[in-house]
Amino acid sequence: MSTEFHPDNAIVKRCMQGMKLEEEGKFEEAGLVFLQAWDTAAGDFEKFLAAWFLARTQPAVSGKILWYERALELASRVDNDAVKSAFPSLHRNLSGNYEEAGDFEKAAAHRELAQACVSQPTDSGPFYHGTRAQLNTGDLLTAGRVSNYQSELVMNHIYFSALAGGAGLAAALAPGEGPERVYIVEPTGSFEDDPNVTNMKFPGNPTRSYRSREPLKIVGELAEWQRSSPEQIQRIRDRFAGKKDEIIN
């Protein structure tokens, strides 16, 4: 059973359906959709996703604890960097829930575990960076460039992904008229999970997106990758239009 996140996965689609209902204020209906996702999930990874969303929609703190504990147990069985990124958030959520329930000992234990789980990702790649710029093998990509999402925002990090499609999406969003390009890159220093996507809509870092203050070295160029639809690209443009403060820089 695959442990990789993919937008075409049936459980991912169902969770996205539930999230849309949440945005519309239909929380009871959303909970039923997430429960359907749990009932039809196959394998620890899919069940982990469903349990995360079920925990969020529980009306009582006891229910939140039950489902977050279940999500934590399932996540511990999945050997996946994207899922490992969810551990700090899982422990923080459990700490808050146990504190609300009056179990201060467990709240403190999960608070300590949340801090202990924060570390540099162990993802070994290969890694990709998407742009419209024509570059050469050996060139260095550095921070300080204009954001793909907001032309007035200069970024403090250089961004990359372990998923070629994610880099391809960045290339499609990049300013300029040149062809979309996806370069194979190597980080020259430490890097971290991209906080703009980690534990946001989905738990962990499912898109395996990272950022670094240190340069990325270009070691090659990718010829083919799964391209995003025009509708997907426009949705992202619309999402970030005029929302500078929502980007964690």
Rank of each mutant, 00 (worst) to 15 (best):
residue 212 S to N: 10
residue 170 A to G: 01
residue 178 G to V: 10
residue 169 L to F: 14
residue 215 P to C: 06
residue 196 N to E: 05
residue 181 R to D: 02
residue 199 N to G: 13
residue 208 R to Y: 00
residue 192 E to L: 05
residue 206 P to R: 06
residue 178 G to M: 09
residue 198 T to W: 02
residue 206 P to A: 02
residue 197 V to H: 07
residue 179 P to W: 09
residue 186 E to G: 04
residue 183 Y to V: 11
residue 182 V to I: 03
residue 216 L to T: 14
residue 199 N to L: 04
residue 173 L to K: 15
residue 203 P to W: 08
residue 189 G to A: 07
residue 210 Y to Q: 01
residue 201 K to Q: 12
residue 181 R to L: 07
residue 207 T to I: 02
residue 209 S to E: 01
residue 185 V to R: 05
residue 211 R to M: 00
residue 183 Y to N: 09
residue 172 A to R: 15
residue 172 A to I: 07
residue 194 D to M: 07
residue 208 R to L: 03
residue 186 E to D: 11
residue 173 L to V: 13
residue 173 L to S: 12
residue 182 V to W: 07
residue 207 T to M: 01
residue 198 T to P: 04
residue 176 G to N: 14
residue 193 D to T: 11
residue 195 P to G: 05
residue 171 A to R: 13
residue 203 P to M: 05
residue 193 D to P: 02
residue 204 G to F: 00
residue 197 V to C: 05
residue 186 E to R: 15
residue 199 N to R: 12
residue 177 E to P: 07
residue 178 G to H: 12
residue 199 N to C: 06
residue 207 T to Q: 02
residue 196 N to C: 08
residue 210 Y to D: 00
residue 170 A to H: 08
residue 193 D to F: 06
residue 182 V to A: 02
residue 178 G to R: 14
residue 214 E to N: 08
residue 202 F to N: 05
residue 193 D to W: 10
residue 212 S to K: 06
residue 189 G to F: 01
residue 216 L to H: 07
residue 205 N to L: 00
residue 187 P to G: 09
residue 215 P to N: 06
residue 172 A to F: 05
residue 202 F to C: 08
residue 177 E to W: 14
residue 212 S to R: 10
residue 194 D to G: 02
residue 169 L to I: 13
residue 196 N to V: 03
residue 175 P to L: 07
residue 210 Y to E: 01
residue 207 T to L: 00
residue 214 E to H: 08
residue 191 F to G: 00
residue 197 V to E: 10
residue 171 A to Q: 08
residue 171 A to W: 12
residue 197 V to W: 12
residue 191 F to Q: 04
residue 216 L to F: 07
residue 201 K to D: 11
residue 209 S to T: 01
residue 177 E to Y: 14
residue 198 T to V: 07
residue 178 G to L: 13
residue 180 E to Y: 13
residue 181 R to G: 05
residue 200 M to D: 13
residue 207 T to W: 01
residue 179 P to Y: 03
residue 209 S to C: 00
residue 174 A to E: 15
residue 195 P to I: 04
residue 175 P to Y: 12
residue 173 L to Y: 14
residue 181 R to V: 09
residue 201 K to L: 08
residue 211 R to C: 02
residue 177 E to G: 14
residue 197 V to T: 15
residue 186 E to K: 14
residue 211 R to E: 01
residue 191 F to R: 08
residue 199 N to Y: 09
